[in-house]
Amino acid sequence: MSAGDTMAAHGATRRGLFDKALLLHLAVLAVLFGLQFVIGEYQHLSLARVMVLATYAVGYNILFGYTGLLSLGHAMFFAAGLYGAGIGASQFGLGVQESFIAGVFSGLVLSTVIGLIALRTTGVAFMIVTMMFAQACYLLTLYFGEYTRGDEGIVLKGDIRQMVMFGYPFDLTSPVVRYNIAFGLLAVCVLICLALVRSPTGRVLVAIRENEERAGMLGYDTFRTKLFALVVSGTMSAAAGAAYALLFAYVGASFASIQYSILPLLWVLLGGIGTVLGPVVGTLLMFYLVDYASEYTSAYMLVVGVALLILVVWFPKGLLGTLRERVIAWLP
């Protein structure tokens, strides 16, 4: 894969480029932060949701883009966060922060367990094993309908969504609070991802993606490294899920369905596999594709489908992936 080769080739000059890449990411985050003061009300509301979902995509990309493991079951991690937080808040009366932690923790536990089992497989078998576990999790949300209300789901009501942090009250029903929490979550995850892929561990991940056998022979414990990547990826996805539940007050089984395992894959591929910002770009692009197309026609799926085909013909490595190949090779 050319992306990895590029990175390896530029390994020697990395230090000098450190600032350029970091600055780019900080600049993008600054723009995202600043946008809230200039965009319209609707964009403001939408962007908050897109940023939460982009966090999910960033998490997905750590496993798929950098480690080369294609999971078709990430919805289970997103749902673990969603239900961990949602059930925590609605059934156990946890506060906002505790619920969020409960969601993230559920994701951590689930991804560790799934990782220990599923990582015995690779390639297509890994795809199916993760998909099967995710399907089982989806059915579990229906099976325990008594607590989850199955497909219909749970609504988190008003007072659950008030919190006090650093002595200040925050109301999650306020759009401004929501935007900035979503932004904060995305910013933290993008920076974690950036730090990770530039760290020695990150380079081992890429080495595994390029040639696992070789990485193993060089003395790296590939199983542990892959498990680490999966747990980081799954936990980040769960954080996105937990944030989704608490910010948008709804927890339902549709978020655990196969569709929500495919979506992050699509977002990552669109934006550029194995780029830190690609998932963010992909998620944004997909949202606006659907949103604008549906303004003009109820057959918007057709428009989205055609747009995907055009994009893939022009940008087979995704927007940023193709850009990196042709213009900015230093993009992490």
């Binding site: 319209g40 009300e41 609707y42 509301l45 939408s46 209300r149 497909d151 219909e152 789901g153 749970i154 609504v155 988190l156 009501k157 948008f248 007050a249 709804y250 339902g252 089984a253 549709s254 949103d291």
Partner: peptide, 26 residues
């Protein structure tokens, strides 16, 4: 969100499937 802010509607209505109602009502 689109109805309330972009289209500026007075009222939203007509949803059938329960999970869509649950997701939208908050």
């Amino acid at each position: 969100e689109k109805f309330a802010t972009q289209h500026g509607v007075d009222i939203a209505f007509g949803t059938l499937f329960s999970h869509v109602v649950m997701g939208s009502a908050p």
